[in-house]
Each structure stands twice: as C-alpha cells, then as structure tokens.
Design a protein around this nucleic acid. Sequence first.
RNA 1: GUCCCCAUCGUCUAGUUCGGUCCAGGACACCGGCCUUUCACGCCGAUAACAGGGGUUCAAAUCCCCUUGGGGACGCCA
Length: 466
Amino acid sequence: MSTMTTRFPPSPTGYLHIGGARTALFNYLLARHHGGRFVLRIEDTDKARSTQEMTNAILEGMEWLGLEFDEGPFFQSERTETYNQYIDKLLQSGQAYYCDRTPEQIDVMRAEAKAKGLKRLYDGHCRELDLGPGPDRVVRFKVPRPGKVVFNDMVKGTVAIDAEEIEDFVIRRADGSPIYQMAVVVDDATMGITHVLRGDDHLSNTPKQIMLFQALGFPVPEFGHVPMILGPDKKKMSKRHGAVSVMVYKEMGYLPEAMLNYLARLGWSHGDEEIFSKEDLVEKFSIDNLGNSPSVFDQEKLNWLNSHYIKTASLDRLAPLLAEYLELRGFSSLDPDYLKTVIPLLQPRAKTMVEMADQTEFFVTPSSELSFDPKAAAKFLTDDAKVHLAALLSRFEEAPSFAPDTLENIAKAYLEETGLKFKAIAQPIRVALSGKTVSPGLFETMEVLGRERSFTRIRRAIALTT
RNA sequence: GUCCCCAUCGUCUAGUUCGGUCCAGGACACCGGCCUUUCACGCCGAUAACAGGGGUUCAAAUCCCCUUGGGGACGCCA
C-alpha cells in the first residue's frame, strides 16, 4: 500500500477563495490524518489566463491559513513535454486521433444538435478518418464505446455514467499544448496521488479522467466529491460574498484559526463539537463525516468563531497583530506593552481585529489630539457635568493607587456625598476619556490610560466650549 | 434541453450505514429575561426543521418509488 497522497491543484486564474481554501484544507487534513503527503500543484496550462501574481496570491493564502504542503508547488506549464509524450502514446495505440474540425464548425454542429433536441456533444466526425498531424488539428480522446464508467466516490457512493454522455474530448490544442484533463491525469499518476478530493463541480470530469487513467494503464486513484459552498442566496458563490481571496477576510479582521475552524465545519462535522484547532482537525478528520449536500456560507457564524478566538488568544499573539491593523490606519511605533494592557479590555468586545483596532484608537491617540464626538459632548459635557468632573478630577489626583477598585471607591464616595446617581457622572467621564459614549469599563479604562492621560483628558473635557 | 448530484430548524449540522432509545439533539443568528456606568462578555429561557405524495413494515427522519425544489456539468477553461 503506497503512502496516502493528496493534492491541491489551483488554477492561477483567480485568487484562493473560500471554496478553494476548504478543498485545500480537506486535502491537507486527509493527508495529515493518515500520515500521508500533501502536494501543491499549480494548474497553469491555460497560458492566456494564468498569472504569476495569482500564483503568489494563492501561496500567500495557504500560508495565512497554515496549510503547509510537503511537495511542490509543481507547475504544469513546465511539464508540457511529459504530457505530450503520453498523448503521443495514446495516438500510437489508436486511443486518440487528430481532428480538423474548427471551433466554428463545432459550434455549428452543437447548435444544430441542440435545435434537433439532441445531445450537443461533439459528433465524432473525425473519429474514423485516420487523419494525420497537421496545422490547426487538435487531438481528441477516443472514448471507448459502447461503455460505462462506474466508480465508488468516497463521499457520494457509487456513481455511474454512460459513455454516450461523454464526447470525444480534446486532449491537445491545435497549438500543441495539452489540455487540463490530460495534464491532471498524467500528474496525478506520476506524482503518486492516491486520493483526489475536490469540489462537486468536478464530478462530471471524473469519468473522462478515469478513462484516461485506464487508457494509459495507470492505477486509478480514489475520488471524493465534496458538495459546493453556496452564497446566502443559495446560488454558486459570487464576488458579492465568498468568491474573493481569503486574504480579504484577513483584511476584514478575521483570524486564520477562526477561518480554518469555520471552513472545516462547512460540510464536515464531528458530533456536536464546534471548536476545533488545526491539531484537533488533523486528529478528528474523516471522510465519513463529510456531508453530502451543499452548504451556505454564513458570515455570522464566522463572526462568532472569530470572537471566540479573539477572546482566547494570548496577548503575545494579539499585540503584534493589532499593531499591524493599527499601522494600516496611521498609528506607527506603538508600544507593544501598552497594547497588551489595552487588549484584555477589548477581547470580549471585538468580533474582528478591525473592530479591535477601532476600539483601540482612543487609547493610542495622543491626548492632545483626541477629538470629542460633538453629539456626545453636547449631551454629556454640560456645565453641570463639568462641575462634577472637576470635583472628581481633584479626588482622582489624590488617589493612592490607580487600580479600578480604588478609583471606583473614590467615585462612590463622591456620589454618596452629593446624592448623585452613578449614571449622572458615568457618561461624562467616559466622553472625557474616550471622546465617545462607548468604551470599556470606566475605571479599567482609566487604569490603562494611566494618570497622565486620564487627567489631561478630563481637563480638556472641562475646558471644552460647547 | 441532456446527464449527474443533493434534500432535517433562517443558517451550519447530529441522527440515516445495522428502521424502534427522536412528538428529532447541538451550534450560529433572532426574540425575551438576568447582570450592568455605556457597549460588549457572561448566564438563563423561548420560537424554530425531518419538502410533498405514495409504498414496505407492528414501527420510517432513517428503506423503495414518484413529484417538487435546489445545485453542478455539458469548452481547442480549469
């Protein structure tokens, strides 16, 4: 029994999107779970649409998610000769043939077939013509007829397709370059791929590929087709929702561990469990637990997972990350130790790192530049409130310690003397400190800001003319 | 149109392999309440599904058939 080997074969004609990322994850997990190998192969046989930029983007996405591969990346564009050798083999053995029908002629043929209500498959015009090589001639695979391809899909069970449903498909273009189906089969065979786990959309390619494996005398790998991920409209994902680079999820403030966890649970489950680390997934992943109906991408659940991971992440992890997001909005050379005192106040409040960055802003904005939200100031920094702020300020200045408890006791003592309710002073203090009506707990905030910032800000609030 | 795949709460799903323990469990979201200095967190609670119809059976979410619905594929794209 050879080592289990899986692969992820993206085409560099687009970014690594949600669906691709999940496919990569499942293949990664399958290989890791069984102690096998995971191969990355870049399928760039379509020269016109493949770019280096996309290849880099895909690599970046996989790195972000932590999907390390054991071999590759291999590039199909560098293996043209190999593919052509196998195509020639097929030609020599009479399992493939040249065809001189032009794309235009084929189009006409398909249109006519459609008009007559027939299958719009290539009609096999050149199948028995025994044409030799020539300019503008493609090579087509001679689908064995009559015939039937039956295979046992790892997730869907037995799938059977009649050869009548499959046309003599092109395996080499007129320009001499090999086509996807050929490249995939040769690669999977020569790279020792034992298990092919991919999206549902490839199900109809499978019989073609199996025929190719057989014609070439290669062992046929195991196939598994995972249901697709749908958008909220239950249609195939569009740019509107997940069909963008997974890196935009990083930009939106998602943690890779949340993304990984979410992706794993889309179409896969392990009893009632919801939280899985990458290690958990490697340990628990099994094809048997894959679902077989399409699933809808739900950002709300991703949000929940993300806030979970934000709440449980270490300060050492979060501080540099937060600094990155803050830097994007112009805050540079921030003190990591200061951020580490801010973060605990924000962990239960931020669903994303972007939100955390939002909420961190007033902590890192220099007090002299802090602006007060006009509405908040008008409502809470009244003349009345300023009197109390001034009184409280002088008491806070005398505080023996700046611990939340101490501060709170000072405030309470003041309230008792004046007969005021906490609510009367809470928002004014908050607006003074943060410029806004929303912030973490007042006294924790003061502790983190420290004496100097706190006092400066309260003084500025008192001095503010509204 | 043809072929293939799929069908449990709004969403992700458990349960389907070996029908009974399921008047269907968990999670997210939503709603209500508690906590409370704002916003969150947290805690408690509620609403919510076996697409429909036929079978088989003492018994069906689980097996079979049909209908309906959804998805995918039909390229000298991958």
